[in-house]
């Protein structure tokens, strides 16, 4: 959806480069297992797709002659360190196994949960949030939100399915969207363009 917006409108107005770069980092840290484990063709294709789209978005926003001029750097002020440092620290302390790949994987789970924050802050400052941006954020929130239903189903049907770190992070991630979803639903019902209160 986001690539569609960027390519169709030649603009990344209202999109946080910080959030996009954090997602790229999340995917790098999480999908290192592409090199040493295989689950299914679907799984591999989706991992490569996420990596490719994340890097493509960052490339457009940073280097495309036209698109990069529409990036509002002054408004996108969230500091990386405030998200990366706590997640890194937490991953070093709270993990299933103290190995490089496991800690990086855990770090990616924690970082994904909060990576949307720069985007949410930027949207609060944006007067006219375009529909594609609003829909993109809603889909991103719904994506992890729907996992919760899947986790409940798998917990009930699979014997050794316990992933506390993933579950708690996923619920926290979805909770961060609660406020956004509330206003998204209100505006959708009223058939109005999304506006977030300052």
């Amino acid at each position: 959806v986001l690539l569609l917006k960027i390519r169709a409108t030649r603009s990344c107005r209202g999109i946080s480069l910080k959030t996009q770069e954090l997602y790229a980092l999340v995917f790098i840290c999480r999908y290192l297992d592409l090199f040493y484990s295989y689950i299914s063709l679907y799984n591999t294709v989706m991992k490569v797709t996420y990596l490719a789209t994340a890097f493509s978005i960052v490339r457009y926003m940073r280097f495309d002659k036209v698109v990069r001029q529409t990036y509002d750097k002054e408004q996108d002020t969230f500091r990386y360190i405030f998200l990366i440092a706590p997640c890194a620290l937490l991953a070093l302390v709270l993990n299933h196994r103290f190995s490089p790949t496991e800690v990086l994987w855990t770090f990616s789970i924690y970082l994904e949960a909060v990576a949307i924050l720069p985007q949410l802050v930027l949207m609060q400052r944006t007067q006219n949030i375009d529909n594609l941006t609003a829909n993109y954020v809603a889909l991103l929130g719904a994506y992890r939100g729907f996992y919760i239903l899947n986790w409940i189903y798998r917990f009930a049907t699979e014997k050794h399915y316990r992933q506390w770190i993933v579950w708690i992070s996923g619920v926290a991630q979805t909770a961060l969207y609660a406020d956004f979803f509330y206003y998204y639903a209100l505006c959708w019902k009223a058939n109005q363009r999304l506006q977030l209160p300052a």
Binding site: D33, S37, I39, S40, N43, M46, K47, Y50, H96, R97, E102, W105, Y147, H160, Y161, R162, Q163, I165, V166
Partner: peptide
């Protein structure tokens, strides 16, 4: 035994 199980989610 890896107690996290197989990481089959994205």
């Amino acid at each position: 035994e890896d107690e996290t199980g197989s990481k089959d989610e994205l």
